[in-house]
Design a protein around this nucleic acid. Structure first.
Lengths: 115, 115
DNA sequence: TTCTCTTATGAGTATATAAGAATATGAGGA
DNA sequence: TCCTCATATTCTTATATACTCATAAGAGAA
């Protein structure tokens, strides 16, 4: 959390989170975790339309999550940092913890019914 | 990132991120970092309307980010885990890194102009 | 029960955004 | 130059969501 809880900070953080908070964009970020890729590669990798990929990449670029370089006719995109990967890992962990809790309470319920 | 990049995982992660990706909700989560609070306290702490707070709390609760307990007429909300706090800290760090990069490039530019 | 306090929900509105289709831009080759 | 490949943008439409205002619901107290 930001040191001083000003409205501005929350908006900035929210914007960055929002850029990631979309399945298609997570899919793009996921592909970019391994290596840089050009748009056509991302289109094939995600199964999204070219227009859609292009628009999502724009959102990611505007939030500074990805970066690009041109090589002849192709434009290669890459992550600017490991942040998206780390965020997703943290979220996944908390989802797993939730499922563990869920499972444990189901087990308890089953024991109650059988006991 | 999820072990197997299925569409489902991305949707689940996106939903959880989306629940956090809103300034008012970040503000609520921020207040709840320190201690549990009732709705009136959160209304005062955020400056939002009571209806707005209630609806945002619902979103957070539905994504399992907060939890509540009733005590007489009041309902106290609390974080279910440190995840939101950790996510925000990670985002803040990456924002600071961006600003450092920005600053460094401005400095370089200035030196170029003066040199 | 009736009143008050606390929280939740509903209706209406405005804004944002995601997707598809079509088109534009931009780089390099014939 | 014209053509093709790679990428970006525009327009339209559909859906989601945040806000305000008003009201409902639920728990105690008188």
């Amino acid at each position: 959390m930001p040191k001083k809880g000003g409205k501005t900070s929350f908006s900035i953080i929210a914007r960055r989170l929002k850029a990631m908070a979309e399945p298609s964009r997570l899919s793009l970020l996921h592909l970019l975790c391994d290596s840089e890729m050009n748009v056509t590669g991302l289109v094939e990798g995600t199964g999204l339309s070219q227009a859609s990929v292009s628009k999502h990449l724009r959102v990611l670029r505007e939030e500074g999550l990805v970066d690009s370089r041109r090589e002849n006719k192709m434009i290669y995109y890459r992550l600017t940092s490991l942040m998206p990967k780390e965020i997703c890992e943290r979220i996944c962990r908390s989802i797993e913890e939730d499922m563990d809790r869920e499972k444990k309470s189901v087990d308890t319920y089953r024991r109650t019914m059988n006991g």
